[in-house]
C-alpha cells in the first residue's frame, strides 16, 4: 500500500511537471491527419508518397488577411508542389461562428479561386489544436526526415500583408528553399497580425 501511495505521489509530481503543450514547436514531429477535401475525398499527408515536405496553411474564406494572401498561396503551390513541397490548406473555423466558412462555401471558394491544392475542412478543430494554429493564414512548413515530418518553420508568409509588391522578406519561400538545398532554415519562426481562428465554444 505504501509503495502504491509512493508511486501515486511520483505520478502526480511528474504529471504536474509535464509542460503544457500548445501545439508544435519547430523541430517537433507532426502527426498525420485525415480530413475531407472540397472534392469530397479524404486526404492524409501520407497520400503523397514522394513529398519532401509540405507547406501546411491554416486558412479560411472570410479573413481579410486570407484574401490578401490568396494569390500568393496559389503561387507558393505553383512554385513548390513540383519540387516536392505541395501546399495543403486547412480551414478550421467553426462554421456556426463564421457562416462564410461552411463546407459548401469552401467548395465554392476553391472553385472560384481555382485552387490547385487541397482545401480541407477541420470540423472538429483537432488538427488546428494539434498544430497550435492560432490565426489565418498560419503556415507550418514540414520537412520529411526519414519516415517523420519535422516542423521546420512556423509563422507568416512574408512581411507585407498589405501589398505583395512591398515584400522584402519571403519567410516561407526562404524556409523551403533552404530545405531543398539541404541547408538549415535561417528564420524558423515569425509572427503576424491576423484573424484568430474561430474556435467552438469560446
Amino acid at each position: 500500500m505504501k509503495r502504491l501511495m509512493f508511486s501515486f505521489a511520483v505520478f502526480v509530481a511528474l504529471a504536474s511537471w509535464a509542460p503544457v503543450k500548445n501545439g508544435y514547436e519547430v523541430g517537433d514531429t507532426a502527426a498525420d491527419f485525415k480530413l475531407k477535401n472540397v472534392d469530397g475525398k479524404m486526404v492524409s499527408l501520407s497520400d503523397w508518397k514522394d513529398a519532401k515536405g509540405f507547406i501546411v496553411i491554416f486558412d479560411c474564406n472570410t479573413c481579410p488577411y486570407s484574401k490578401a494572401y490568396n494569390e500568393r498561396i496559389i503561387a507558393l503551390n505553383s512554385k513548390y508542389a513540383s519540387n516536392g513541397f505541395p501546399v495543403v490548406a486547412i480551414n478550421s473555423n467553426d462554421a456556426s461562428a463564421s457562416s462564410g466558412d461552411s463546407f459548401e462555401k469552401m467548395i465554392d471558394y476553391a472553385k472560384k479561386k481555382g485552387y490547385t491544392f487541397p482545401y480541407l475542412v477541420d470540423e472538429s478543430q483537432s488538427v488546428a489544436r494539434a498544430f497550435g494554429a492560432t490565426n489565418t493564414p498560419h503556415v507550418f512548413v514540414l520537412n520529411r526526415v526519414g519516415a517523420e515530418l519535422k516542423v521546420a518553420y512556423i509563422g507568416t508568409i512574408d512581411d507585407s500583408p498589405r501589398d505583395a509588391s512591398g515584400v522584402s522578406k519571403r519567410y516561407v519561400e526562404e524556409a523551403v528553399d533552404a530545405l531543398l538545398a539541404g541547408k538549415p532554415v535561417a528564420q524558423t519562426k515569425t509572427k503576424a497580425i491576423g484573424c484568430g481562428i474561430k474556435w467552438k465554444n469560446s
Partner: peptide, 20 residues
C-alpha cells in the same frame, strides 16, 4: 507600423498576433 514581426513581441511575448 509596417512589419508586425518586429513589434508584436514588444507588446506581449505570448501574443501570436491574432485578433482580438
Amino acid at each position: 507600423e509596417r512589419n508586425p514581426n518586429q513589434w508584436i513581441d514588444q507588446i506581449a511575448k505570448e501574443w501570436s498576433g491574432a485578433l482580438p
